[in-house]
Amino acid sequence: MEIPILKIEEFLIVSFQTELSDQEITKLTEEMLEKIKKTNAKGLIIDITALRIIDSFMARCLSSIADMATLLGARTVVVGMQPAVALTLVELGLRIKWKIQTALNLERGIALLRTVMRSEKDSVYE
């Protein structure tokens, strides 16, 4: 299944619409990284509104994607996590390992990326 990677301003937006297999997530990770490089994107927004489950494997994939994007100079924000998923992830014991930025929804995700980028820019010129 082809998963579209959209570009808005300097951000890429990927929306997970179904449960992804390991192969699909691996392929999508490569595509996202390629597209960050190709489009000079400064931010990556991963929308997981449609996901009704995130297990430790998926959490690790998201974490890796964020790490890889950071190496390319792009910040990642995961948006739209369902309350039941958040609750389950904490009970699962993930909170110590979860280092990814999150926001309630797409709009706040974009706002968060803008803030992060602005503060990084400020610190460069200080």
Binding site: R52, I53, I54, D55, S56, F57, Q82, A84, V85, L87, T88, E91, L92
Partner: peptide, 10 residues
Amino acid sequence: QCRITTAISE
């Protein structure tokens, strides 16, 4: 449902 599904997945 989410707890059960996640436990099964693990």
